[in-house]
Write a protein that binds this DNA or RNA. Structure first.
Lengths: 142, 142
DNA sequence: CGTTGCCTTGACGCCGGGGTCAAGGATTAC
DNA sequence: GTAATCCTTGACCCCGGCGTCAAGGCAACG
């Protein structure tokens, strides 16, 4: 099969395939006229790459999986190098998620605070000298 | 104060300040010799920008906060436009965190599966024809 | 006077993962 | 024959947020 068909079957573009080839990730055989030609096993490699890319793996991080498949293993993650990438990625994801969760909470608190401040200003403007801010720690109002 | 001092006091670089100015975010007055000159209020604006940037806000997203401060409000988030950015960012963060959590779980499962497969292969190789895989649903082994 | 150290503008580089021409060759279809 | 698709390589573009020169001006110190 030629590049256009492979691209279509993997749901990507010819440009992407040539890019992968330029990175040494998915080399192609050539026919007499210089056209790239691929077979079903290339489609498997490509699908492996795409799956990992969709997970947010860098292109370089897919390389161990591709090489594992090319070495004849049944799955791209049948090799230690692939497992190592999984583990590293898990760590990165945990770190990133934790960091984002921290930011999320900070932003949520800032929003709360700012909304509260605006509400107080609005109330004060509506009834100038009107309802005092309630003291939530109050005992009996003398 | 001049650009170098402002940069130092905000923990950033002169290049960054010129970049912000080129984006219209932090314009500078000029002295007679063409040097940029800033005052304390500029430092406040800059700190606001930097804080939000550290949270992962795009530069454009800091603009409402800066304009809010420049309009004389006590805080950068004292204006509705800033609150809108907060809310939008919260949504984005939640979506992103959820997505990353999904990927994290998928990767974790893949890792588990792949490790399990390797362990089974190793066991089989160690005692060829040895311990059969246990059938967890078994009744009596006839 | 020279040296050092700040400042100015302008312009290119980087990173990842390709998109998007451009100019030309090969094959197939009619 | 020629039109329509494919294919080839090469090269520039994009994004955001700056880093990093380059070439030259202004100020202060000794």
């Amino acid at each position: 099969m030629r590049i256009g068909e492979l691209a279509a079957r993997a749901g990507t573009t010819t440009r992407t395939l040539r890019y992968y080839e330029s990175r040494g990730l998915l080399p192609a055989r050539r026919t007499g006229n210089g056209y790239r030609t691929y077979d079903e096993s290339d489609l498997r490699l490509l699908r492996q790459i795409r799956t990992l890319q969709d997970f947010g793996f860098d292109l370089e991080e897919t390389r161990p999986f591709v090489e594992c498949l090319r070495a004849g293993h049944p799955e791209g993650d049948s090799c230690p190098a692939s497992l190592a990438v999984y583990r590293r990625k898990l760590g990165e994801l945990d770190a990133l998620i934790g960091q984002l969760a921290g930011v999320r909470d900070t932003v949520a608190r800032q929003l709360q605070r700012a909304e509260q401040a605006r509400a107080e200003l609005a109330a004060e403007a509506e009834v100038p000298g009107g309802p005092e801010p309630v003291c939530e720690l109050g005992g009996d109002p003398w």
